[in-house]
Computed example of a mutant assay.
Amino acid sequence: MISHPSRQCTVELQALPSRIGQVRRILSAQLRYWHLDQLIDRAALGVTELLTNVHRHAQPDKMCTVEIELLLDRLTVSVRDHDPRLPVVEDAAELSTCGRGLAMIAAMSESWGARRDGEFGKVVWFTLPTAGSASERAPAPDLGVVDVEPVGVAVEVEGAPA
């Protein structure tokens, strides 16, 4: 069996405005460590929006977990909180100063979604393609079927910066 390399970073926090800035700095440092500088602005914007939603709406508390995962050619950023209510994308009034966060995440990401997490929580996530991912490359020419015997590969996962 071939295992695929994965990199992961997890941060637990209370979604207060001062902590949101800290998470953006952690996310930026982690993406630089993974040599994904081109994703920093979009990932920081997306995580800010998700954490702001936790700060504004999550009940009974503002505790949450941010997870950043790089798997092959895709970065996934997710925020898990203790409020089971799933977010709803609504049309914001023209002069409204809020209510556009999820629509913005949908526009700037490859995909996004929300799912229940157990009885008392949810996870809201978005994905960004890394440079050179399948969605950005031209399709490879079809050279016919090649029969290759899979070989087991053990991959040591790099963690957070030391």
Rank of each mutant, 00 (worst) to 15 (best):
G159D: 15
R100S: 08
P150D: 00
L27F: 10
Q8F: 07
D83T: 07
E136G: 03
R25N: 07
A162T: 04
R25A: 15
L128K: 03
L75S: 12
E94P: 03
L71G: 01
A93W: 07
D81Q: 04
A114T: 15
S96K: 00
T76D: 07
W34N: 09
A107L: 14
T65I: 07
V145G: 01
G113M: 06
G46V: 05
H4W: 04
Q38I: 00
T127F: 03
P87N: 11
L128E: 08
K62D: 15
L128N: 10
M108F: 11
E149C: 05
G144N: 14
S133Q: 02
L86W: 11
A44V: 07
L27C: 12
S6V: 14
G21C: 10
S135G: 05
T76Q: 11
E49C: 09
V79T: 06
L36S: 03
V89K: 05
P5M: 13
V54Q: 04
D73S: 12
A162V: 05
G121P: 11
A131D: 13
V77Q: 06
G144P: 12
P84Y: 09
L71H: 11
A154K: 05
E110Y: 13
A44P: 05
V11F: 02
S18P: 09
V47F: 04
E156Y: 14
D73L: 09
A15D: 09
Q8L: 13
C98H: 08
R56H: 13
V54P: 06
A131Q: 13
E12P: 03
V153A: 12
L31Y: 06
I40L: 01
V146Y: 05
F120S: 14
Q14M: 06
V88Q: 11
W125Q: 09
W112P: 00
V11D: 05
L128T: 08
V54W: 04
P17H: 01
G121R: 05
T48W: 01
I68M: 11
A107W: 00
R137D: 02
G46F: 00
V88I: 10
P150M: 08
E67N: 09
R74A: 13
S133H: 03
P87L: 00
M108H: 01
A15G: 11
L95T: 06
I40M: 04
I68A: 15
S133E: 04
D81K: 02
S28W: 14
L70Q: 13
V23N: 00
Y33F: 15
R42C: 11
H35D: 14
R100I: 14
V23D: 01
L16H: 10
A103I: 03
I40V: 09
Q59D: 07
L102Y: 13
G99R: 00
T48R: 04
W125E: 11
E158H: 10
T10G: 00
R24C: 15
V47G: 10
E49R: 04
A44H: 00
P5H: 08
P5K: 07
T76Y: 01
L27K: 00
A134R: 09
C98F: 07
L95M: 06
M63L: 03
W125N: 08
G152F: 11
V23H: 01
T52W: 01
A58Q: 02
E119S: 12
P139L: 06
R74D: 12
